[in-house]
Design a protein around this nucleic acid. Structure first.
Length: 858
RNA sequence: GCGGGUGUGGCGGAACUGGUAGACGCGCCAGACUCAAAAUCUGGUUCCCGCAAGGGAGUGGGGGUUCAAGUCCCUCCACCCGCACCA
């Protein structure tokens, strides 16, 4: 057998070029074939691809190539999520224009992706920063505006006073701006919102039907939408004209109310604070509190007694104090609550701290309410209502219904559904994003840019010298005449959140050069995406926003679709060990030499601490550059390793040994099939007909091949790529163990070698293509149909049956398939191993499961 | 706190609706080839006892159902992830 290795670089480049020239991966127009749209989440052009991309795109590529072989018209496009903050940071740090930085990165990364040999239809490539894309996004924005799905409102934002910009919550770290370090202020700004809440119910309900989405993601979305059912109640305030509206999910506990509480940001709080400096101080204190997880966990409940009394709606003469409390959130419900300490732990903590009244109104049936005292634990369980007038003795559920009925009759409240989901704020005070196509006119107010005037292009001549939004301090860009009255007006200088860009790109891929956002015929044909693949980190925002966009675009008649992604697969991350030197500084893997005892630095031999394996990240330096791997081992090896070692939805541990293993297999296939090619009949004589009879070992090999076809097919269909790879290894082992003797055997060898190539082609397409050619085959393997398993060959003539005595394995028997149960029983009982254990005892019972097991019970 | 997931050899992981636990790979051991090494090939490799034949134990711990449990039920433990003062 040859020891030669195949020339990875030349071979891979050759076949990539061949596929390109034959235009193999261009999606065809609608025709006879069924369609299949496979999409991986498009990358942000950060500079270079990373292993996470390699894993993601390899999985998508396996699916795309497999579906192509199965006869589908496949759409497998690629694009760039190209707007975003890093481009502006690069502009500030390196004096390079965001556009140039972005397009340079795209060029680099496109080259890297092409080197992976992905079956991408590059003619459909899009970049969201290109006017050919964002122009249409502006059209959609105007449609949303017209449909009432986009609106402007004042909202509280995180304002960085140094950088003069709004920060997302994730960009505020311990109350300070992530870049400037300045203490972040809360500011009220006028911002654009998308009315995602208009679809809250549908977004929630549809989740139930999305069976090809991971349960985990559906659950996260369900929680995020956060539907709750309860009631709004309006309370009277003693001696004041205004009323207080609260939201509660426990209207049944209304008789247990012992205080009321306002959010520090409630309008009533604000008006009271105008004349109460102590309250103003309290509010300021609350707003300065950290809102991160640990802080909330440990934060003490604090309140300020306003002196106002809230009237109980059903108990004449009863009133309770009204507090401003730090734990009441302005952005849920009405920003005010009624406190029932008996049945809400937060209310309990608060009541105990401020010495407020505490008593139960729900108790388990076995407890006598007379004189019963609650401790410091609120009772949250089921039971019957007590101490509650007309609600007494009802169940919690019945009491809710009855009290809501009463509220509605009295005109002081109503049953209501509430959502945690907020409308999506999309304004960003940034340059590198899609300009919001509206004009502000002093006389006419907000005026949409006429569609004929689109796109509103980003100006190129911007300066990043000053902090703040370059669009805002551009000398002329904002100045425009009002399209309605013609008077001088100004453009909205905000740009859209980059999540907007990624919320409809999957639809644009269907007709990437259309003069409208989408062509109806194309989206009708291609959508929904049949298989979407990406990281779990987008489980909520991106996927929810895309679902919103589908609904909003449907209103504008751009498409007619319930859900954008029929199938979703969330792949695991790529992990690597971490290394630190004696000072605790992170080290790159290539700086480390590992040996038996541990590890040292390559230069200087200093001791290295090996840390646990974590998701590859630049900050921990535990990264492997895909380009280096491809240069050394080739794309096939990188792809195979991505698929072979772990189930696709779990994290994958990158190891040098694992890569070496994949490399070995690629070379092994090359030698194995190359060898077979040298010995086997020519393609022409092979195709003229198989021999009528094969020897036993040849039949055995053929059976293995057809079982492999059935197994690999099933494994790819069910996203078990690691199992599919194991099947390929088994088949390769069978080929290499096969000793061909005579012409019939050579035919079987050739047939099996071709099968191996076809099955392996979606995973290691370059070497498969090379070997296909070496077998004397014309045309490209990529255009070949998927092999069919011959059912007469996947069935064994004999089966191995386990023989147990009292459930313990004693021996195995080789029996003819589907042999009579009595025969199996007799054969098992006669076996010496069984006889020995029985020691002459007669079996009490014998259980025979056909083709599987004989269990003798004594 | 609420919700979800995972736990199988030295390691990554297989195991269909309960039916031979450990496929396949990595690592390791031995052998072939070689002056030697690498590469490659062959064989072995869950643990314990045994030269062997064979026997015993074993899927995070404990208990249960069953002829039979990694798989079903109860209970406990560990780790991971998501959400979180949502009234």
């Amino acid at each position: 057998m040859s020891n030669e290795r195949y020339n990875v670089k030349e071979t891979e480049a050759k076949w990539q070029q061949a596929w390109d020239e034959a235009d193999c991966f261009a999606a065809a127009p609608p025709g006879d074939k069924p369609k299949y749209y496979v999409l991986e989440m498009f990358p942000y052009p950060s500079g270079r691809i990373h292993m996470g991309h390699v894993r993601n795109y390899t999985m998508g590529d396996v699916v795309a190539r497999y579906k192509m072989a199965r006869g589908f018209n496949v759409l497998h496009p690629m694009g760039w999520d190209a707007f975003g903050l890093p481009a502006e940071n690069a502009a500030m740090e390196r004096k390079i224009h965001p556009r140039d930085w972005t397009y340079e990165n795209i060029a680099t990364m496109r080259g890297q992706l092409k080197a992976l040999g992905l079956s991408i239809d590059w003619s459909r490539e899009i970049a969201t920063c290109h006017p050919g894309y964002y122009a249409h996004q502006q059209t959609l924005f105007l449609d949303f505006l017209e449909a009432g799905l986009a609106y402007k409102k004042e909202s509280l934002v995180n304002w960085d006073p140094v950088d003069q910009t709004v920060l997302a919550n994730e960009q505020v770290i311990d109350g300070r701006g992530w870049r400037s370090g300045a203490v972040v202020e809360k500011r009220t700004l006028s911002q654009w919102f998308f009315k995602i809440t208009a679809f809250a119910d549908d977004l929630l309900e549809r989740l139930e039907t999305m069976e090809r989405w991971p349960e985990r993601v559906r659950l996260m979305q369900r929680n995020w939408i956060g539907r709750s059912s309860g009631a709004f109640i309006t309370f009277e305030l003693e001696g004041r004209d205004e009323k207080l509206e609260v939201y509660t999910t426990r209207p049944d506990t209304i008789f247990g109310m012992t205080f009321g509480a306002l959010s520090p940001n409630h309008p009533l709080t604000a008006s009271l604070a105008e004349t109460d400096s102590e309250l103003a101080d309290f509010v300021a204190l609350c707003n300065s509190e950290a809102t991160n997880e640990e802080a909330i966990e440990t934060a003490e409940k604090r309140g300020y007694d306003t002196g106002i009394r809230v009237r109980h709606p059903f108990i004449a003469d009863k009133s309770v104090p009204l507090y401003v409390a730090n734990f009441v959130l302005m952005d849920y419900g009405t920003g005010a609550i009624f406190g029932c300490p008996g049945h809400d732990q937060r209310d309990m903590d608060f009541a105990r701290k401020y010495g407020l009244e505490v008593f139960p109104v729900v108790l388990p049936a076995e407890i006598d309410p007379a004189g019963y005292e609650l401790g410091d634990e609120a009772y949250l369980g089921e039971g019957r209502i007590v101490n509650s007038g007309f609600l007494d003795e009802l169940t919690v559920e019945d009491a809710k219904a009855k009290v809501i009925e009463r509220f509605e009759a009295d005109g002081i409240g109503r049953g209501a559904i509430q959502y945690r989901l907020r409308d999506w704020g999309v304004s960003r005070q940034r340059y590198w994003g899609c300009p919001i196509p509206v004009i502000h006119c002093e006389d006419c107010g907000i005026v949409p840019v006429p569609k004929a005037d689109l796109p509103v292009l980003l100006p190129d001549d911007v300066s990043f010298d000053k902090p703040g939004n370059p669009l805002d301090h551009h000398p002329t860009w904002k100045q425009v005449d009002c399209p309605r009255c013609g008077k001088p007006a100004r453009r909205d200088s905000d740009t859209m959140d980059t999540f907007v860009d990624s919320s409809w790109y999957f639809a644009r891929f269907c007709s990437p050069r259309a003069e409208r956002p989408v062509e109806r015929a194309d989206v009708d044909y291609w959508l929904p995406v049949d298989q979407y693949i990406g990281g779990i980190e987008h489980a909520i925002l991106h996927l929810l926003y895309s679902r919103f966009y589908t609904r909003a675009m449907r209103r504008g008649d751009h498409l007619d679709l319930d859900e954008p992604f029929a199938g979703l697969f969330t792949q695991g991350m790529v992990c690597h060990e971490t290394y630190r030197d004696e000072k605790g500084a992170w080290l790159y893997p290539e700086q480390v030499r590992k040996d038996a005892g541990g590890a040292t630095t390559l230069e200087g031999g200093r001791p290295v601490t090996i840390g646990r394996s974590e998701s590859m990240s630049k900050s921990k330096r535990n990264v492997i550059d895909p380009e280096a791997i491809i240069a050394t081992y080739g794309a096939d090896t990188a792809r195979l390793f991505m698929l072979s070692d772990s189930p696709p939805d779990r994290d994958l541990e990158w190891t040098d040994a694992g890569v070496e293993g994949a490399y070995r297999f690629v070379n092994r296939v090359w030698r194995l099939v190359g060898d077979a090619a040298a010995r086997c009949p020519s393609a022409q004589s092979f195709d003229s007909g198989l021999p009528s009879a094969f020897g036993e070992s040849a039949m055995d090999l053929r059976r293995k091949a057809h079982k492999a076809i059935a197994a690999v097919t099933e494994d790819i269909d069910s996203f078990h790529f690691n199992r599919a790879v194991a099947r390929l290894y088994e088949l390769a082992n069978a080929i290499s163990a096969f000793e061909a003797d005579g012409e019939g055997d050579l035919w079987a060898l050739r047939e099996t070698a071709e099968t191996l190539l076809r099955l392996a082609a979606p995973m290691i397409p370059h070497v498969a293509e090379e070997l296909w050619q070496s077998l004397g085959r014309d045309g490209l393997l990529v255009t070949q149909p998927w092999p069919e398993a011959d059912s007469t060959l996947t069935i064994e003539e004999s089966v191995t049956v386990a023989v147990q005595v009292n459930g313990k394995l004693r021996t195995t028997l080789s029996l003819p398939l589907d042999v009579e149960e009595a025969v199996a029983e007799q054969t098992a009982l006669a076996h010496p191993a069984v006889q020995r254990v029985l020691e002459g005892r007669a079996p009490r019972r014998v259980i025979v499961v056909r083709n599987r097991i004989v269990n003798v019970v004594v």
